[in-house]
Amino acid sequence: DWREIAKLAEEALKKQQPVTVNGQTFNDPNEIKKLLETAQKAI
């Protein structure tokens, strides 16, 4: 669910920690931002 992904990505950016989505881990803040943008577009 994109809403859940957006929430996870936002928290990861705030806490500056990696986030795992669908078994894929994102460590890079730039990648997390991209993930968040993608999720927000999909909602």
Rank of each mutant, 00 (worst) to 15 (best):
N30K: 13
I43C: 06
Q17Y: 10
I32F: 00
K15T: 14
I43L: 06
Q16N: 14
L13E: 02
T25I: 12
T20K: 10
A12W: 00
T38F: 12
K33D: 05
E31K: 05
A39S: 06
I32T: 03
E31Q: 11
L35T: 02
N22R: 10
E37L: 05
D1Y: 11
A12N: 03
R3Y: 15
K14G: 12
A12M: 04
E4K: 05
D28L: 00
K7R: 15
I5M: 06
L36H: 04
I43K: 05
T20L: 09
D28C: 04
L13D: 03
K15V: 10
N22F: 08
F26D: 03
E10T: 09
T20Q: 10
D1C: 04
Q24W: 02
V19P: 01
I43N: 06
K41Q: 12
P18M: 08
E37W: 00
E4W: 03
P18R: 07
Q24V: 15
Q16Y: 10
P18V: 08
A9G: 03
N30M: 12
L35R: 01
N22K: 09
K15M: 10
P18K: 09
V19H: 01
D28P: 07
N22A: 10
T20R: 10
I32V: 09
V21H: 07
E11H: 06
I5E: 02
A12Q: 03
I32Y: 00
E11M: 03
Q16V: 11
R3N: 15
T38G: 08
L8V: 10
Q24T: 12
I5Q: 03
A42Y: 06
E31P: 01
Q16S: 13
T25E: 10
E4P: 04
T25K: 10
E10P: 00
G23C: 06
K33Q: 14
E11N: 09
N22G: 11
E10A: 07
Q16M: 14
T20S: 11
F26S: 04
D1V: 01
K7H: 12
K7T: 11
E11C: 08
L36Y: 07
N22Y: 02
T38W: 07
A9V: 10
K14N: 15
Q40M: 11
A9T: 07
E11G: 06
A12T: 00
D28R: 00
F26C: 07
P18G: 12
L35C: 03
F26K: 04
L35N: 00
I43R: 05
Q17G: 13
P18E: 09
A39T: 05
E10Y: 06
I5T: 05
Q16D: 12
E10N: 06
D28H: 03
P29H: 09
F26W: 09
Q17N: 09
N27G: 08
P18W: 04
A12R: 00
K41L: 08
A9R: 00
V21G: 02
E37I: 06
Q16R: 13
E11I: 08
I32K: 03
K41W: 00
A9Q: 01
Q24D: 09
V19M: 11
L35K: 01
L8Y: 03
A39E: 02
E11W: 00
Q17M: 13
K14T: 14
V19E: 01
E10F: 05
E10I: 08
K7E: 09
L8M: 12
V21C: 04
L13V: 05
Q17W: 13
K7P: 00
G23H: 07
Q40Y: 06
P29F: 14
P18Q: 09
G23W: 00
W2R: 04
I5R: 01
L8R: 10
K14I: 14
N30H: 15
D28N: 05
K7V: 10
Q24L: 14
I5S: 02
L36T: 01
N30F: 14
T20P: 02
N27E: 14
L36I: 10
A39W: 00
D1I: 04
Q17D: 07
Q16C: 11
I43D: 06
A39N: 02
I5G: 01
I5L: 08
F26H: 07
K33A: 13
N22I: 06
Q17C: 05
Q17R: 11
Q17P: 06
I5K: 01
E10L: 09
F26E: 06
A42S: 11
E37V: 05
L36N: 02
R3W: 15
F26G: 03
E11L: 03
A42C: 11
T20M: 10
E31C: 08
T38I: 15
Q16I: 08
A12H: 03
K41F: 00
Q16L: 09
A42R: 13
V19A: 07
K15H: 13
A39Q: 03
P18T: 10
L35Y: 00
I32E: 02
K33C: 09
Q24N: 11
K7W: 09
Q40F: 01
E10S: 07
N27K: 11
N22V: 05
N30P: 07
E37A: 06
Q24I: 15
F26R: 04
L13F: 03
G23Y: 01
N30S: 14
Q24M: 15
T25W: 10
E37G: 04
Q40A: 10
K14H: 14
G23D: 09
W2L: 07
K14E: 11
Q40L: 13
A12V: 00
I5W: 00
T38K: 12
Q24R: 11
E4N: 06
E31D: 15
L35G: 01
V19C: 09
Q17A: 10
V19W: 00
L8D: 06
Q16E: 13
G23A: 04
K7A: 09
E4D: 12
E10V: 05
K7Q: 15
E10R: 05
L13T: 04
Q17V: 13
E4R: 02
V21N: 02
K14S: 12
W2T: 05
K15F: 08
D1F: 09
A42K: 10
I43P: 05
E37M: 01
E37Y: 00
K14M: 12
A9L: 15
E4G: 03
E11Q: 09
D1T: 04
Q24A: 06
E31A: 11
L8P: 00
A6P: 00
W2D: 05
K34R: 11
